[in-house]
Nucleic acid binder design. Sequence first.
DNA 1: GCGGATCAC
DNA 2: TATGGTGATCCGC
Length: 397
Amino acid sequence: QRIEKMMQQKANINEQQLSKAQAQVEKLTTDLERGRDLSRVIVHVDMDAFYAAVEMRDCPDLKDKPMAVGTRSMLSTSNYQARKFGVRAAMPGFIAKKLCPDLVLVPNNFDKYKAVSTDVREIFADYDPHFLSVSLDEAYLDITEHLDQRRLWPDALRTHRLHNPNTGTAGVENQGEGSKISEEVDNVSPLLFEESPSSTPQPCLQDASVCGTSGGVEMFGTGAEEAVREMRFRIQQKTLLTASAGIAPNMMLAKVCSDMNKPNGQYKLPSTQHAVMAFIQDLPVRKVPGIGKVTEKMLGALGVTNCAHLGQEMALLSLLFSETSWHHFLHISLGLGSSHIQRDGERKSMSIERTFGEMSALEEQFSLCREMCQDLAQDLQKEALKVFAFLALSALM
DNA sequence: GCGGATCAC
DNA sequence: TATGGTGATCCGC
């Protein structure tokens, strides 16, 4: 019905209205283009088949079987073997059983997922203390500042011990489905700065000039991709689970990018206008966060299926959709998105500021100031700790 | 301001 | 046998 109504509206649009709309879209486009921010490095991290992966880790019998987590009426997620049968998250378990009769159903263990999530978030905090959790298995990070610092770091701070008690060789990168994963969970600390009390940094740093895997030690570079590779490596060492990540200049793009090399992979979109536009063109609109089933169908009725179409039809879309909707579409078609991650609360108090006027504005500024000071103090403390540990290590060598 | 629709996990 | 629970946002009234 909504599509019918829309098509009717479309039939009543004349050339004059369309060209007027086109002019308006073009003006807004140049304004938006002027404000494009490519200076930030945003990362979206997503644990692979999270609940299913946790259950497989804790029950080796499940490892080579198609399985799903949930009930007979609703699945939370499934492992990759089950996905081959079409078994997906948000599907009723009894239907999944029809698609895949051998499917093993495991009930939700939320307390366990929460505990694992806490472990992963401790690692996130090392790269962005203000990271934003979307759910137990997903988060956005702004690693711009981390990278600035990281460039000044000595190799030791980017070096992590390989936890692989049996073989002592590489192979960690490929621990997806099918391969055996050690059941030991403790003693998985990287070489330095692991928060868990069980870890006592041992002075077994080998030839620091060796890059990559060597003698149970893995060293990472200073760039964004290397930093994210390191973060995923540490997640795997600590939890025995894999994660995927996307690196891009804003949240919308980072989210899409994290899907590109899933599972256990990552993708970096270069921070140039050209690369962003090229990336966006072929992207199906449904892949964009915020565009769901309904919007996809509405756009589909207008012949819009990818983001290039979105850009081409903006004038029409501006006449058929609400202002917030077509503004959203325009942002997407230009590859624009939020380039700074807002912590919960900050935005809300900003709107209170507007409502309450001058006095509240001052208080707001004050509390914001205080918050920043606290953050600074925290960062400083962390950095100091790292330098201290490094010096101690150097002395030992 | 409220309820319905959409979207995400 | 059997198709979730929750929160956010937008829109129209």
